[in-house]
Design a protein around this nucleic acid. Structure first.
Length: 479
RNA sequence: CGAGGUGUAGCGCAGUUUGGUAGCGCGUUUGGUUCGGGACCAAAAGGUCGCAGGUUCAAAUCCUGUCACCUCGACCA
């Protein structure tokens, strides 16, 4: 049942006029989040948190199917642990928040509010592993982390954010690499099949990789302003952390060996990706797989006899097959208001139930993805709603894919690259030197996204320096 | 952290130039009439004007300081 008061519903700034303002209008008015009294922090409201729960539901199932277990590590990390892996420290030190006092006493050693938990997992793994029989260990945790960012935006970059972080250790480098790619694939599947967001899957450059990783892989999505959003990452650490934290085991042939380690994570940033991929002038558009409410039933003239009862009957039928349905039975609100409200909230399918429908024994529906209204015989309810929800899921994906493809182009020189990254993604050949990466960033504002797994070359020479190219790579402006 | 902007009722704002009773719209509450694309009428509640100093008979308004937020740049899931 809808429980909210009316609240205010006002004008949403058009995307074309000011994309940033549109984003802010949508997230606040659809009641996903609100600003918190703490700098850079957001409050996830029930509707926003429900989307996160949907994402958790889908991912957690896949994690468990692939042999992972959930654990929980402490929020506070002693400074000495954080200092153990040099590159890792250097990467995270500037954005760590510190606890220096307990009660009235100054602490002997200050404690970091975790920015990520590699060091904590490593510390524990070093205690828990002694034999090859203990391996692999594949743990994940759902938690929040804190990074003291200079500038923040709800979902995209906040001081504290919710995420999952998987940390695994393996006997061999090959096993760790297989794990890294398997989790990346699960992220791709989540993005494309559940969130209806097409992603570029590939490897990050050395410059853009995670602090302390041997290699980092990512999924990259295009937002409606043509900028990229890194939507998930998976890292292979090789034995670097194992050496720093002394995580060793006795192998089958009795030798002391270092473990190979991975980590991988996605965050509530994914919700930002959903909004900026699918949203339109009326508000959110949520993919049915993760929409907290899949079908919104709006009673028309709900005071009239039989209307609410008819709504209940339809809702119960849909619930019986696991469809998430809600009846907006707030009285004193007009049907028109409720229509706009359900569209603002991005509910994929709306069913309008009024005296006419009841009399004619039909279901009148409205699709959020195409804004089409239609009707069918009530006897077809269960079948047709399922079909419609599937169609909406696919339609959102294909709209997003079409948009991305239209805004992606192959470029062969700096001028073309510069022009292309103003509107979207540029595919280019690259020599592999960080100097070219830096120069391109300097001159165009674009950074490398990733090197896709399909490395079919589109040319011979580096887009920047003209020397022999080594890699096909994506450039774009990024969040 | 550099540049610019904004803080007045739950939300959006006016009032500040020229100091003099705290305003408007939306929302909220109560009652009634409505109900197929953002309903209407009537009554009501709600504010130490971001915070701290100062000037003045008198400060939302002038001065000083400070905090927060927003936008744009440098760093990041």
């Amino acid at each position: 049942m809808a429980k909210e008061n009316k609240g205010f519903v006002t004008h949403i700034t058009p995307r074309s006029e000011d994309f940033s303002q549109w984003y802010t209008d949508v997230i606040l008015q659809s009641k996903l989040v609100d600003y918190a009294p703490v700098r850079g922090c957001m409050v996830l409201r029930p509707y926003g948190y429900a989307i996160w729960e949907s994402i958790q539901r889908v991912l957690d199932k896949r994690f468990k199917e692939t042999g992972h277990e959930n654990v929980y590590m402490p929020l506070l990390i002693p400074e000495s642990l954080l200092l153990k892996e040099a590159e890792h420290v250097e990467g995270f030190a500037p954005e760590v928040a510190w606890v220096t006092q307990g009660g009235n006493d100054i602490l002997q050693e200050r404690l970091a509010v975790r920015p990520t938990s590699e060091t904590m997992f490593c510390t524990m793994y070093s205690k828990w592993v002694s034999s090859w029989r203990d391996l692999p260990m594949k743990y994940n945790q759902w938690c929040s982390v804190m990074r003291w960012e200079k500038s923040t935006r709800p979902f995209l970059r906040t001081s504290e954010f919710l995420w999952q972080e998987g940390h695994t250790i393996h006997a061999t480098l090959d096993e760790a690499q297989a794990e890294t790619l398997q989790m990346l694939e699960i992220y791709r599947e989540l993005a494309e099949e559940s969130l209806a967001i097409p992603v570029i899957v590939g490897e990050k450059t050395q410059k853009e990789k995670f602090a302390g990783a041997n290699s980092t892989y990512s999924i990259e999505a295009m937002m409606q302003d043509g900028k990229a959003l890194q939507a998930g990452t998976s890292h292979n650490f090789g034995t670097r952390f194992a050496e720093a934290f002394d995580i060793q085991y006795l192998s089958k042939d009795g030798k002391l060996e270092y473990v190979s380690e991975t980590s991988w994570g996605v965050s509530t940033r994914l919700i930002g990706a959903i909004i900026m991929t699918h949203g339109d002038e009326r508000g959110l558009r949520l993919p049915p797989v993760i929409a907290p409410i899949q079908v919104q039933i709006v009673p028309i003239a709900q005071h009239k006899e039989g209307v609410l009862e008819a709504c209940e009957e339809i809702a119960n039928k849909l619930k019986s097959v696991g469809i998430r349905v809600d009846i907006d039975d707030r009285d004193t609100l007009s049907a028109g208001f409720k229509f706009n409200d359900s569209e603002l909230k991005g509910i994929p399918l709306r069913i309008e139930v009024g005296p006419r429908d009841i009399e004619q024994d039909i279901i009148t529906y409205f699709r959020r993805d195409t804004l089409e209204k239609g009707s069918f015989s009530k006897s077809l309810l269960l079948n047709n709603v399922s079909v419609l929800l599937n169609q909406i899921q696919k339609e959102l994906y294909s709209q997003a894919l079409k948009f991305r493809d239209e805004r992606t182009a192959d470029v062969f020189n700096m001028e073309e690259l510069n022009n292309q990254v103003q509107i979207g993604f540029a595919r280019a050949m690259w020599c592999g030197d960080v100097e070219c990466e830096d120069k391109i960033k300097e001159e165009t504002g674009a950074t490398t996204r990733n090197m896709p797994f399909d490395q079919t070359p589109i040319g011979e020479t580096c887009v920047c320096c003209g020397k022999k190219a080594k890699k096909l790579i994506y450039f774009s402006k990024a969040y």
